[in-house]
């Protein structure tokens, strides 16, 4: 059973990572980030229940809260990018280089 949970975590995390690194769309990348956070949470919550460790469960709660905050900040930035008329593609963000 233990390995199954780790397999899920691994798959989810690598999917999230792939989305962040490969996708061009900013939104998709944001989703990828959330996916990675969720994957780590799965592993954490599984282990915490096994050991019924309160501190770990508190950690899970913290992680969920932080992931949410992250999403908020991410969305606000993406909205500003949209409003400035440059579309969602990550490709156009190349003013800063060298």
């Amino acid at each position: 059973m233990n390995t199954a949970v780790w397999a899920v975590t691994g798959v989810l995390f690598s999917a999230g990572l792939a989305m962040v690194v490969l996708r061009r769309q900013l939104l998709a990348m944001l989703l990828g980030l959330e996916l990675m956070a969720a994957a780590a949470n799965v592993g954490l919550v599984h282990q915490a229940c096994l050991l019924s460790d309160a501190e770990a469960l508190a950690a899970v709660a913290i992680v969920i809260a932080v992931a949410a905050a992250e999403a908020v900040v991410g969305l606000s930035l993406i909205l500003r990018v949209l409003r400035s008329g440059r579309g969602l593609g990550a490709g156009e963000l190349t003013q800063l280089r060298g």
Binding site: A90, G91, L93, T94, L96, G98
Partner: peptide, 9 residues
């Protein structure tokens, strides 16, 4: 460092 976000990541 051509500045593209995806390359950085």
């Amino acid at each position: 460092s051509a500045g593209r976000l995806n390359d950085s990541l």
